[in-house]
Amino acid sequence: MRAGLLAGLCGRVIALCVTMSLVAWIPPTSAQSFPSRPITLVVPFAAGGPTDTLARILSERMAADLHGTVVVENVAGASGSIAGARVARATPDGTTITIGHWGTHVLNGAIYKLPYDVIADFEPIALIASGPQLIVGKKALKADSLKDLVAWLKDNPNKATAGTAGAGSGAHVAAVFFKTKTGTEFQLVPYRGAGPAMIDLVAGQIDLIFDQATNSLPQVKNGAIKAYAVTSPTRLASAPEIPTVDEAGVPGLYISYWHGIWAPKNTPKEIGDRLNAAVVAALADPGVRQRFAELGQEISPKERQSPAALAAHQKAETEKWWPIVKAADIKAE
């Protein structure tokens, strides 16, 4: 009888072990059940800025494709590195992701001493779109062309002010390059994002911004600010009246803000693929495409919207810009 009880107990133990093994074998999250709770899309700048605008356009369409909720959260400060640290430390289950760009995921790695690696600590999801900067000024500036602006800056060294999205931001880097190319000097005024800087430019509190077209074009079109040039070898299809830097007198000042979506390192591939599919679907939507075009954004071709394409592009940009930034001794202030 004792032998029978022992055999029965052993059988139960074996059955329990098998059951536990099967449970342990089931992946904690799968693409089929994802997302089981709301997704937070972290924007590394203040609300109202260019990156925030793109995030809100995308999030609405992504939510529909994912049959879930995508919440945009603004985490501003230190040119996007505060948000970067938060997402790098987040649980890699696909429910915390970030939108970033040339500044946050390339320049910050050369300028800041970060508690994370801009490449190694993230899983690339999708390359979204790119757009050049605009050199824009307050409406009251006497200069009506880029050549006139350069002449005025030379005649008034350090009297003009240019807003940036923070020390080491793309606007900061562009302003330094502009100074170098034109031999001009002016003061840089850091903000917590391009949105607040634009508010002060429209109000006439600062003189200039080297700004993403996404942020500036609406204000240019409504006549609130002046546009001097686009930092591209070709004119914008959505604003063909704005000359290129080559045409306007500062040749070769090419800067393109490209945006991407990243998740924390070790996010399961099947979840990354599901997020990528949602982004690709959003970028194929006619309404999204129209809104991006109105903001001067060129959506990446479908073959370049993959995680691998974003990883390759980020690597190439890092190899290009890090030596330039370090040679110019651009540092966080």
Rank of each mutant, 00 (worst) to 15 (best):
I82P: 04
T51H: 05
S59D: 10
G103V: 00
T40L: 07
G77E: 02
T51P: 02
R56C: 06
S36L: 14
G109D: 00
I39V: 14
L107T: 00
V42R: 03
R12Y: 14
T40C: 02
A110I: 00
T96F: 08
A88F: 06
P38L: 05
A31Y: 09
D121S: 05
S33T: 13
D117I: 09
P92F: 11
P115C: 04
G11D: 03
R86S: 12
W25E: 10
T51W: 00
G48Y: 03
L66Y: 13
C17I: 13
A76C: 05
A46N: 15
R86A: 14
R89Y: 08
G94K: 10
H105C: 03
R61F: 14
C17P: 03
S36W: 14
A55L: 07
A90N: 10
L41M: 10
S33D: 15
G100H: 00
S21Y: 13
V18I: 15
G48E: 01
P44R: 02
A76G: 03
E73S: 13
D121H: 01
P44F: 01
T104A: 07
V13A: 11
R86L: 11
A15Q: 12
V70G: 12
V71G: 01
S33A: 15
T40Q: 12
W102M: 11
A46P: 04
Y116H: 10
V118G: 00
I26Q: 15
A63E: 08
S36D: 08
I97F: 06
V18W: 10
A15D: 08
D93I: 02
I82S: 11
A55F: 04
A110F: 00
V118S: 00
A31F: 09
L107M: 14
Y116P: 10
G80S: 09
I26T: 15
V23E: 02
T96P: 01
L16I: 13
I14F: 10
T98Y: 01
V72W: 04
A120Y: 03
V70Q: 12
A120G: 05
A15N: 05
M62V: 06
D52S: 13
R37I: 11
A47P: 08
P92C: 10
F122V: 03
T95I: 02
M20H: 10
T91F: 07
G94P: 04
A63M: 08
N74W: 04
V42P: 05
M20T: 13
R61I: 06
